[in-house]
Amino acid sequence: MKGLWRTCALTCLAFAVTGCVTSTVDEMVFNEPTEGIGEASVVILGRRHASDYDTEPEFIRCVGNYIQARDDSVTVIGELEFLNSLYPWFEPRTAPLRPVDLEKLLEHKPVMDKAAELKIEYMIWIDGNTVRTDAAGSLACAIGPGGGGCFGFNTWSNDANYEATIWDFTDRAEVGRMNTTATGQSYMPALVVPIPIIAPVQGTACDSLAEQLLAYLSSEY
């Protein structure tokens, strides 16, 4: 009974200390695999061509894990594993920018053999990032021989914007685009102890985008 109360209290606290997030998703897809992708596999990669931001590797992992956790028949190849297996052909400098570029890449026999071994059916490129936008307030902390503490209030908002482009690896064609945006406000009041109330902006964007990709790739959704 005591354990149940503790669980309830922790759950309520977790909800109470989470900031609000607003998320929207747009998609345009065609040639959807109605029977799922069978024994083939999918690779999800981050675009890293922009000079002022990088698609976060943890976001790519999050999308892959979300899909794999909800439909284990969809094989998702890890980004780093794929990049290492096909080094140096998918580094930011050498990665194909259009589906037709795959044709030239597959002229290299070792690359073609490796792609066949990995049974790649879809290649999904995710481009975007999460940024902190407005921030306000001030918070000061002090430490002395008798102890320490903080006082003040901080607030900031985060914006996430990601676009996924789906390439059909067999047909060398783009078969869909999905976009997700999420915005959330986080707070940090401090009265001796700072209490972070964080809006899970990146996590919400990850869930929204992964849900759409799952609906495209999985026969069960």
């Binding site: 990049l83 290492n84 297996s85 096909l86 080094y87 140096p88 290299h108």
Partner: peptide, 9 residues
Amino acid sequence: GEFPTPLME
């Protein structure tokens, strides 16, 4: 860091 072997002839 770890560096992969290049996939090429």
